[in-house]
Design a protein around this nucleic acid. Structure first.
Lengths: 124, 124
DNA sequence: CAAAACCATTGACTCCACTCCATGGTTTTA
DNA sequence: TAAAACCATGGAGTGGAGTCAATGGTTTTG
């Protein structure tokens, strides 16, 4: 699959895809025809990008994501404490979830307050 | 309360506090003694900063946060659609929560896989 | 009272994650 | 087959959110 198709499929810009590839989050083959230098992405790249987008949206950095993806592919990588790393990232994500939930509660409270003040200002 | 105390209380650096003040997220009085130019923060600033930190950690931008805090204080502000704004921020936070949960699932799966491969490599 | 600790301001700097641009080659399409 | 659409590379630029450093006042402390 060429970069334009992948871009259309994922909603990520070509530039972002090339950027992610340079960062090592995704990979491509050189084009099968040697007449051009177009990238050729494996079919499962879109799926991989869905994981990447989720993780990015959840607040994981590209560097951490690369570490994780590398580990997921090759079992482990070097003598580095993957278990501890996973624990940290998991804690980070749980922290995000709880702060998001608290903030959500705050916003719902604000909306309720606005509704009440509307009630007062626009009685019927 | 002076900036150092507030910093100790919240874990945010003095620089960050001054930065947040410049961005309009928090406010201070000029010092009661006119001999110095120290900021004097109201007592409830720490509480306010806890909300701010939660919201920032959850992914809200400073600009959005300012809009929200301004609205929460003054009912509404101008002829701008606060309700729609709230809906968008709420959707954003819900999105963060769901992507974080999916990513969390992925990481737990990874940890399980590692555990299994350890089981194989280090049988007893 | 002197040193240490605290505070202010201004402006430069860093880091991250893109995003844009210029230039030039290849494919597709009307 | 020419224009339009697609692709590549390299490097510069952007925006958000801090962070740091220099300089110079004020307070606290031993």
């Amino acid at each position: 699959m060429r970069i334009g198709a992948l871009s259309a499929l994922t909603g990520l810009s070509r530039d972002t895809l090339r950027f992610y590839e340079k960062q090592g989050l995704i990979r491509s083959f050189p084009s099968s025809e040697p007449s051009n230098t177009y990238r050729d992405y494996p079919e499962d790249t879109a799926e991989r990008l869905r994981m990447i987008t989720d993780a990015r949206d959840a607040g994981l950095s590209i560097a951490d994501l690369k570490t994780l993806l590398d580990c997921m592919e090759s079992g482990d990588l070097g003598a580095f404490d993957l278990d501890a790393f996973l624990d940290e990232r998991i804690a980070q994500l749980e922290h995000v979830i709880s702060t998001a939930q608290r903030t959500l509660g705050m916003l719902n409270g604000t909306r309720a307050a606005i509704a009440v003040s509307d009630q007062i200002h626009i009685p019927e």
